[in-house]
Write a protein that binds this DNA or RNA. Structure first.
Lengths: 222, 222
DNA sequence: CGTGCAGTTGAGCAAATTCAACGCTTGTGG
DNA sequence: CCACAAGCGTTGAATTTGCTCAACTGCACG
């Protein structure tokens, strides 16, 4: 039975006034930050959608688990990203945190009500949803590629979203990458090795990837 | 070089007042219907987005062609569907018609301007974009499945969108289905045959599929 | 009545998965 | 503090799945 949106028992409300990084939404709507331990569930499929979420730090994955036991990850969210933007009342995917994370929660119905009056808020909802749609479309494109190229495309996406310099710190494990790309861990691992042998990357640690030839990665995944 | 949104040379404006099936948008915005011959390009990637589109009849596909020669179809649109909902100025996918189609074109900037004032129009834009996002997410889920199950999922989607009874008239060719599912024509063809042998469908003609056991299809693709 | 395109089927091949083993890191308890 | 168990990642070998290449059928159109 779906929970009705009550905060999870592990959740730790931190403050009830907007923190400095809060978006303009938050000032209007009393957004609040909750800390989640690793692998904590944020919401699950079919559950009533009570909040929109913004990643303050940490990272989040949304997914569905299929009858055959496979899990398809729909998206990863990193600091700054907003997720859970449901127009209807129910979530269509499950969401949980990849590593310990702080999330800003914004009351969904309050924001929707605000958007009824404030054209700026309404426009922002549309813009964010459209950005999410583009991300999903890019994700779909990856499935036209063979394994190594999918992994290259994944690294390009992650580099764009969280690389400061020429190094990416991946927030997720190999299994998560595999479930995002529709591959197995073994194939992902072999793909990393192959990209290393192509001098495109160096795997400094399993999570920390040095991008030695970014354009080669882009070329592979296009 | 991208066209700047001028109507294609083959386009046939039919009337300049809204037809009876026009959405409320059209009455406000002087939408107009254009007829496209089979395989006509509607717009291409990177092109300036001048219009939103609604399928009156016929069908449309959006896609990207990759460097490896493969084409990944992002979505099919059938009568009633709206597509081309770009928030920014540029299209991110190409679009062309699958079979002869009539499309209702609505001036993009005019509708965006209207949405600035009319909260109803703004809400509709958001709703339509969110529906499109859900469709893309469902599409992504299919890639977690093996070939036969992907085809089953495809048939379920098409049945939901255009089946009157227990028969679906597919608007697209096998190659299009293959490019939507990340498979080859041969594999799609074999999957149809397998589904037939499982008594889930009967292929009456290559385009007309009798759904003999809809729930079996749902089960396979879930 | 061909000609051409779309779809199906078969055979061999390539790519990714499965199954298995092993190294490395991390954390825990003796 | 060390030993060892557990989890993650990598690698190898065998298997399976889907792809490539090729032939053939049926239908539509000129």
């Amino acid at each position: 039975m779906p929970r009705t949106g009550a905060l999870p028992h592990h959740a730790t409300p931190q403050r009830d006034v907007p923190p400095t990084y809060a978006s303009p939404f938050a000032r209007e709507l009393m957004g609040f930050v909750i800390s989640y331990p690793p692998d904590a569930e944020i919401y699950s499929e079919e559950e009533q959608a009570e909040y929109f979420y913004k990643v303050v730090n940490g990272s989040v994955r949304t997914y569905k688990t299929l009858k055959n036991g496979r899990r398809q990850i729909a998206a990863f969210y990193v600091p700054g990203d907003v997720f859970g933007l449901e127009t209807r009342g129910k979530h269509t995917l499950s969401a949980d945190v990849v590593a310990e994370s702080n999330l800003l929660l914004i009351n969904r119905s309050a924001l929707v009500a605000l958007a009824e009056q404030d054209k700026d808020a309404a426009g922002r909802l549309w813009t964010l949803t459209a950005a999410e749609l583009r991300r999903a479309q890019d994700h779909i494109q990856l499935f036209a590629l063979p394994a190594r190229e999918r992994v290259a495309g994944f690294l390009v996406e992650m580099a764009q979203r969280l690389a400061a310099d020429d190094e990416v710190e991946l927030p997720m494990a190999r299994q998560d990458i595999a479930d995002y790309l529709g591959l197995t861990v073994e194939t992902v691992s072999r793909s990393f090795t192959q990209l290393e042998r192509l001098d495109a990357i160096t795997v400094r640690t399993s999570r920390r990837i040095l991008l030695r030839n970014y354009f080669a990665l882009v070329r592979l995944s296009a």
